[in-house]
């Protein structure tokens, strides 16, 4: 048994190495998605196809906080994030956006009957968002800065989202967000100098965020595309060319079923 000391040491080292290997592997697994790892894959709120490469989980992870930087394109990006979830029958609440363009939301593909709006939450912003997080799949908060939201409130909201498996989407800066999205390099096409009309907007959407999510992914999308919905930039020549001739004079109903009969 004496001579075995070396082999026992060898055995122990081997075990240790194996343990290390295993934990490394699980570290790699853990660090890939944002937030808790146990609900990988299944608990993701889907987003529209063109935005998927931007998000570490291929969608909005339930329980996570996502911020959309304010600025040009932010509201359209927000609609694009809500579209797919809304189409699958999920509920979304929007707090503190008095000027939300519901027509644009509908054109983007958001189902308005599942989009609850609280345009003016007043001083009860935190209470309202907490209540909505209990029942909604996605809650959009805007004007957090204006309402004087403190870091403590932010943490409370993020914790509630995590607990309820909802997604908290912040319009504007949100320190501590798991994923940060923003639009840049926007370019409208369709309008000339006194001619044409706005047709589509090409934009670069960048994502960043805490930990490994902050890989700095970027995607070039049409936000919105010609129909009003987010689209991938497939053939720039076809989409971004000269103003389109012969567009119908009444406009092109993007979603004819949303239109309203008169009389």
């Amino acid at each position: 048994m004496v001579g075995d000391a070396a082999s026992r040491l060898e055995l122990a080292r081997g075990l240790l190495r194996r343990m290390e290997d295993r934990s490394e592997r699980s570290d790699a697994v853990r660090s890939a998605p944002v937030g808790p790892a146990e609900d990988a894959g299944a608990d993701v709120v889907p987003v529209a196809e063109p935005l998927r490469p931007l998000l570490p989980a291929g969608g909005l992870r339930r329980g996570s906080t996502v911020s959309v930087a304010s600025g040009t394109g932010s509201t359209s990006l927000l609609f694009a994030l809500l579209t797919e979830a809304s189409a699958q029958g999920m509920w979304a609440g929007v707090v503190g956006v008095p000027g939300l363009g519901a027509v644009a939301a509908a054109e983007a593909g958001v189902r308005l009957e599942r989009l609850a709006l609280v345009p003016r939450p007043g001083g009860d912003l935190v209470a309202v968002v907490l209540a909505l997080l209990d029942g909604m799949d996605l809650v959009v908060v805007a004007g957090a800065q204006r309402a004087g939201l403190r870091g403590q409130d932010r943490q409370r909201l993020a914790a509630r989202a995590r607990q309820r498996g909802a997604v908290l989407l912040a319009l504007g800066s949100w320190p501590g967000a798991d994923v940060e999205l923003g639009c840049s390099d926007v370019r409208w096409s369709g309008a000339g100098r006194g001619a044409g009309r706005l047709c589509s907007r090409q934009a670069v959407v960048r994502s960043g965020g805490r930990g490994s999510a902050g890989a700095g992914r970027r995607a070039e999308v049409l936000l919105p595309g010609r129909s009003g919905a987010v689209a991938a930039v497939h053939a720039p020549a076809a989409v971004l060319g000269t103003p389109v001739r012969g567009a119908p004079a009444h406009g092109t109903p993007a979603r004819g079923d949303e239109r309203v009969a008169v009389g």
């Binding site: 054109e107 009003g228 406009g251 109903p253 309203v260 009389g263």
Partner: peptide, 18 residues
């Protein structure tokens, strides 16, 4: 569905000031 001639075609503005 009735048309509203004169309506600006999509995309529509994402923010409509109150």
């Amino acid at each position: 569905v009735p048309a509203w001639p004169g309506r600006i075609p999509s995309p529509s503005p994402a923010t409509v000031p109150p």
